[in-house]
């Protein structure tokens, strides 16, 4: 058994929130640069150049890349031989979010209840936390700050097994097409296939954490990712939906076994400000 103080987790999460908001990951920078060179639309080129300038300014001035610093969405991979002492795990994560969003001048975007009052919690808590139990005594904390505009374009479809590959591909492409300029293209598309409706949703979030350019190890799914990206970039949506050949930077697909009757597909849309950062404690 390994012991880990809750305060160590809170401190690490505080820093993680700020770093994720200020510094665009290298894989996203590289993808934006590469796509800028291929863009054909004049407005599209201008937008991509401004987006590249933006990540430089944000890092230099330690300002959020986007004013929407998102729902603090965590994926926690926690070893079964790890014991958190001196406080609760969930409390420690929320304490880190509270301090990170306050001390880092990040926007607080959470309301306490979604329909009736919608009062801001003023510290961006609570975080949305997904947990996976792993072997050993490690702790890996991944933060995906999830902006509202892109998340609003996410979609689920419970396909019939007979709909197969074509059905899945068509649904993903149509989701990006319908979203148009709303999710701040060029987007990163996370796709979860299989499991149950809720698990496919989780897989689609997990897919967003995969580095751009890295493919699913299953060659069928890797091929699907490449073909989806090609089809999406032929839609014409372009940067910010104003036209062009850069509609998506990547499509990442994750899958899980599923019921004989089912073929769930969940598409999570993310903007070009694809913030994702992990730490191990």
């Amino acid at each position: 058994m390994r012991e880990l103080q809750a305060s160590v987790i809170a401190d690490a999460v505080e820093k993680l929130c700020m770093d994720a908001a200020y510094y665009l990951p290298e894989d996203v920078k590289a993808a934006l640069k590469a796509r800028s060179e291929q863009e054909e639309s004049e407005i599209g080129k201008y937008i991509l150049a401004e987006v590249c300038e933006n990540y430089k300014v944000a890092a230099e001035e330690q300002m959020p890349l986007c004013q929407d610093t998102g729902t603090a969405l965590f994926i926690i991979e926690m070893g079964q031989e790890l014991v958190v002492t001196g406080g609760g795990m969930v409390d420690a994560i929320n304490e880190g979010v509270r301090r990170g969003y306050t001390n880092g001048y990040l926007r607080k975007s959470m309301v306490a209840e979604p329909i009736f009052e919608r009062v801001n919690t003023k510290d961006n808590t609570p975080a949305v936390i997904h947990t996976e139990i792993t072997e050993g005594d490690g702790l890996k904390i991944t933060l995906l700050p999830k902006g509202g505009g892109a998340e609003n374009c996410s979609a689920v479809k419970m396909l019939r097994p007979a709909d197969g590959l074509q059905g899945v591909m068509d649904f993903v492409v149509e989701t990006v097409n319908v979203a148009g300029g709303k999710p701040c293209p060029p987007v990163i598309v996370g796709v979860g296939v299989g499991g149950t409706a809720d698990y496919a949703a989780y897989l689609s979030k997990k897919a967003l954490n995969r580095e751009i350019g890295e493919h699913n190890p299953n060659p069928n799914y890797a091929k699907m990712e490449t073909e989806l990206l090609e089809r999406i970039n032929k839609l014409g949506v372009g940067p910010q939906g104003l036209g062009g050949v850069t509609t998506a930077l990547a499509v990442n697909v994750e899958y899980f076994p599923c019921h004989i009757a089912s073929l769930p597909v969940f598409v999570t849309m993310n903007c070009h400000s694809q913030r994702h950062k992990s730490i191990e404690l």
Binding site: V51, N54, C66
Partner: peptide
């Protein structure tokens, strides 16, 4: 008018 979504640090200037 459309401003550039996600160019928020540049727009602040």
């Amino acid at each position: 008018l459309a401003a550039i979504g996600g160019a928020a640090a540049v727009i602040a200037k």
